[in-house]
Design a protein around this nucleic acid. Structure first.
Lengths: 156, 156
DNA sequence: ATTTGTTTGACTATTTTTGACTAATAATAA
DNA sequence: TTATTATTAGTCAAAAATAGTCAAACAAAT
């Protein structure tokens, strides 16, 4: 169900920069509880994936999902570095890398290298430490990409 | 039983590049406990045998087995993975990466990504822990370079 | 007899679904 | 204007729906 609603919203976002919904209407449309919509948004339309969400309650209330716009590669990398901050979960880290791949800032091989490096199983086992180390790694790797010549793309 | 399930999955993989199952369904189909499926996957669909496995738990969960192509740098990478072992210093790790670059197994960008990830300053500060985590990271990244997915699947 | 591989199930981990309760805003009444 | 009510959306935790781990029991191979 989550996947279906996600796909629906993404389809709309393919055409437009943003989409505005009434939570109860979408819930009705897909025959689910309204809070399911919050779940979809919280797990699939995060800032790490490149979305901003605004909403308002009360009469005429809405939820608005906005695709984040960035100017260029450097801007994107810096934005991501900021988003990462000093701690990041495995899931969010992988979202960030996926986003960079989707936006063709890194190659598939680079994405895979980075994604495997985000895996929880490689670290110490202490969540707090791991999230900090993971953020350090990811930030460093992205910062490194900032100083490089533009990506020479191989067919992938 | 393991052989039967293995054969079944391989038959499907003869036709397609990947197969997605629901663990409980397959367990039911072959009248075995669900964890038997994990055993089959862990023993017969390893990365060394040319398969990649992804999965998700929870509602709509699945196990996906993907055929991958083994690259000819396999031997060299496996040797390096063995050499790395469970601990590696920053210096040794960096020379491993340098060698990969010299041997043209990785690109310059990939090399730089990996090199920055080996840096001591990113880890916990405890030498023993750091050398272990660094080895985990490097081994994972190298293992990842051994294989390549044939082609993409998602239409989105 | 010993070692290696397989089966089983109890326990754990993760993700999604659901619904009761809370919070915010707008509309309306006083 | 102020208070009240209606109309939204948000939060949180429990329940449900998956898959993963691990070790004991069992079986097969040497």
């Amino acid at each position: 169900m989550t996947d279906i609603i996600e796909a629906y919203l993404k389809k709309v976002l393919k055409q437009k920069e943003q989409v505005e919904i009434r939570r109860s209407e979408i819930a009705e449309l897909f025959d689910c509880v309204p809070s399911q919509i919050n779940y979809v948004i919280n797990t699939r339309f995060t800032i790490q994936k490149g979305y901003l969400v605004e909403s308002k309650r009360g009469g005429g209330g809405y939820i608005r999902i906005i695709k984040v716009q960035v100017l260029d590669e450097l801007d994107m990398l810096n934005t991501m570095i900021e988003i990462i901050g000093n701690n990041i979960s495995e899931r969010d880290a992988k979202s960030v890398v996926q986003k960079l791949y989707d936006d063709k800032i890194i190659s598939k091989r680079e994405a895979k290298l980075m994604i495997v490096a985000m895996d929880k199983s490689l670290y110490t086992g202490d969540r707090v430490t791991d999230n900090r180390v993971r953020a350090n790694l990811l930030r460093s790797m992205l910062a490194n990409l900032c100083y490089e010549e533009p990506n020479k793309r191989k067919a992938d």
